[in-house]
Write a protein that binds this DNA or RNA. Structure first.
Lengths: 243, 243
DNA sequence: GCTCCCGAGTTGACACCGCCCACATCGCTT
DNA sequence: AAGCGATGTGGGCGGTGTCAACTCGGGAGC
């Protein structure tokens, strides 16, 4: 039903004259193959040589595009971040204009991404990408993802859905909750998450808790009646669908 | 000031007759050395042979105690979980009896543990320890850690600090927030966390948000006056120490 | 007190890995 | 047309995880 959140490099594979000595776009092909391999085997026993083998080049060709095995992994993580914001934005575009609904969708999409790309998510957060990191592009991509989230927070504050104040606080709280939940579910620490139904309910509960934590203090959804807001029936309907 | 939260295997090193052919307690020595090495280099470029070298045995000796490199890593992760609950319990024993303060301490301790044992924490959550996992001891240790957290939630609910309901929901929300925050800080995604002062304030804000999310609905700390509760002065004092 | 046995540690080997080197091949510039 | 830099190739080195065969030594049984 909902479009898959699985990472895929959409851009066409850049005509590959198979027999040619020079590969059309080896760098991209390497990242794609590496991503697939990470998804299959995880980033631990992941072999630079095997990536090269899959792409059909010699075991040394990757070194023309990446300084080291780790550099390629960093590129994969970077691609992961980009795919992440793309998927978030797609979901956001489909969502209603109401800030709360958008936040809810963003939150759920985070977990969906985690479930469909577990290895990629782990990889994205397995690098120390502190300022001293030798992979500025990776850091850049990560910051872009954060910027997207922060932007949503600012909008939500303007709409009065969130309590006013530093948007970074709200963004951090939301991100922490979504990220922590994703990691725990990925780890199998949350047995209830095995069944999709229960999992959805769980995500909903966690979102509710987050929203109570950073949402506007009292009135929220009761005292706000009378403003030119969309009817709350839809929102309330999705909120507690059963139980 | 506060005792270090760094992992260390306390039990005495089991007399090691240095010259002996048979090592006194090689298994434990291996886990200790492995833990140290993980802390130094991270679990990625971590070498089974080097662990053996450090302990002073041949490169194949570990195979008498662990089936594979990964099995040793799993043992390290397991030790990490055990150290984690130990540290949480120590902090809990020092904290006041009030449920909210205990939760606050637990929350802060989580981040402290993460900052002092970043590699260990990552390792602990890098294994898929779902039911099918070949490392039941690891899973067991992880479940014990969760049980500890859940127990605190139940107590907090009984004291009326948390809203009644499934304690697992509250536990999951707290764990998610603490874990997500820790990972993001470790990753350098939270620039403010560089300075200890700002970091403490941040942790406090995140805890407040969590507590609002799962805490008792309205009255909390105002309407509860009159019960046989400890004076709220102390709690309020630590809550907003400055700004 | 001697024997034997089996857990615990050792040596050796194999396939594979990441990375460095020198070399081959192409496409573009002048 | 020449050549030059970017891109891909093949070989090799030190190191790694793991398997197999070997050796050591302490304790049980007599």
């Amino acid at each position: 039903m909902v479009e898959s959140a699985r990472i895929s490099t959409r851009r066409r594979a850049a005509r590959k004259p198979r027999d040619a000595y020079h590969h059309g776009d080896l760098r991209r092909a390497l990242v794609d193959a590496a991503l697939a391999l990470v998804a299959e085997r995880g980033p631990v026993d992941w072999t630079l040589r095997e990536v090269a083998r899959r792409v059909g080049v010699s075991h040394n060709a990757p070194y023309r595009h990446f300084a080291s095995r780790e550099a390629l992994l960093a590129a994969v993580a970077e691609e992961g971040f980009r795919a992440f914001v793309r998927i978030i934005e797609e979901a956001d575009a489909r969502a209603p204009r109401e800030a709360e609904a958008r936040l809810r969708g963003c939150f759920a999409t985070y977990l969906r991404f985690a479930l469909e790309n577990p290895a990629a998510l782990r990889l994205m957060f397995s690098h120390e990408l502190a300022d001293k990191s030798p992979y500025p592009a990776l850091r850049q991509a990560a910051l872009a993802a954060y910027a997207k989230l922060r932007e949503m927070m600012v909008l939500a504050q303007q709409e009065g859905v969130l309590r006013p104040g530093d948007p970074d606080t709200a963004a951090l709280a939301t991100w922490s909750m979504a990220h922590g939940l994703s990691m725990l579910v990925l780890e199998g620490q949350v047995p209830a998450a095995a069944e999709p139904r229960k999992r959805d309910a769980l995500v909903e509960q966690m979102f509710e808790a987050t929203l109570r934590g950073i949402g506007a203090p009292r009135p929220r959804r009761a005292a706000r009646a009378g403003t030119s807001r969309a009817p709350r029936a839809s929102a309330a309907g999705t909120r507690r669908s059963r139980s």
